[in-house]
Design a protein around this nucleic acid. Structure first.
Lengths: 199, 199
DNA sequence: GCCTAATTAGAACAACCGTTCTAATGGAGC
DNA sequence: GCTCCATTAGAACGGTTGTTCTAATTAGGC
């Protein structure tokens, strides 16, 4: 029990509640109850609720990017299939019972001022994800990986939000289909190597 | 002054503040101050803050859809160009100084429970927008207008959220470019009638 | 076994929340 | 001119917010 059990319990409770109920929608009281921890412990390990929020956003960023990269890596050895697997990752995520959209989109919505520290953390997360996608495009030897990554990221955002507002939209599959078209469109008409239409 | 000036002032203030600061982020006090109205007036015309929120969401739905439809109608007489004009509408919207994303996406994020009345109003709004887009696709005689509308709507969501989280992304133009590709892809390779590449 | 530090429970705080009440003021319609 | 009702200002309500404080309790390292 090196990293103090109370601090960990608090962070875990914060991750659950801030994500599913929103930041303003989650009281310190609720976090303490969920963590099974005394009030004092919170202010011993974090300077304030906002400090805990910042910690939550940082671990969420780390974890979510990890999930995404692990998923696409495990999905296939073919770099192009890994690009498409981004949307299988989304489908997997959407099917989780506590799916509540993207924590960072939600945070940017709650703190609309783009200068607000939390909003900035949201932008930073999205920039990081964009970088990861761009990396996938480069690995797949796709032309203009920067531009394509921006397109693929926009599709992901659209799918996330669509599924959040109207659950059951099957938005991940929709986005994947569009992604196929985009890749096809930017590829100099190479005879589709692994484009076995299945879905 | 038929529809009581106080009620109107309250609704107007609610529209501004709920949209730009969020619902939970806006206090009754702030609305009263902005509206320049006494506290009692609020509870005379609306049964509660939640009642005012519902009223806000309804007028926002009506107005936003009106803005969109008016914009694309005025943009061109060519039905296909009207489809593309959806994304010019977005660009116009994004450039407004108080742009804070989509009020309904934000509301669905704040009230994550899909059964919550506010979340349901958000779903209803998106369904309505989807219907309008489908109508545009039909007018443009595009094949499978229902499926295409879902794709175009997903692009719009992606652009809105991208611009909200990271202002200055030029996401509207990005989405428009993708929309062109999608329309091209679903059209049985008719020689591009009005596809004069300009942007 | 003792010392240190983490943790605990719970009271207390001021500030804010949404809401209700009281009482006075205003103006428009008959 | 009087009545009715929208509107006003402001106090007051109970509940919740985030935070601080006080003490008592636990557990680990030397």
């Amino acid at each position: 029990m090196r990293p103090t059990p109370a601090k960990d319990a608090l962070l875990e409770a914060a991750c659950e509640l801030f994500y599913t109920q929103g930041i303003r929608g989650t009281s310190v009281e609720a976090i303490l109850e969920r963590a099974g921890v005394a009030r004092q412990s919170l202010y011993q390990h974090f300077e304030s609720k906002d400090g805990l929020v910042a910690a939550f956003l940082n671990v969420r960023d780390e974890r979510w990017c990890g999930w995404m990269n692990d998923f696409v890596t495990a999905a296939s050895d073919d770099p192009l299939q890994r690009v498409y697997a981004l949307y299988d990752f989304l489908a997997d995520w959407f099917s989780q019972p506590d799916f509540s959209g993207c924590a960072f989109i939600n945070t940017a919505a709650e703190y609309s001022n783009p200068e607000h520290p939390f909003h900035l953390l949201a932008s930073r997360h999205k920039a990081r994800v964009l970088g990861d996608i761009e990396h996938l495009c480069k690995d797949a030897a796709l032309p203009d990986p920067k531009a394509l990554a921006r397109q693929l990221a926009l599709l992901m955002e659209g799918a996330i939000v669509t599924e959040q507002v109207s659950p059951g939209s099957n938005a991940a599959a929709e986005a994947k289909a569009i992604a196929r078209i985009l890749v096809q469109a930017c590829t100099p008409s190479s005879p589709h190597t692994t484009t076995r239409r299945k879905t």
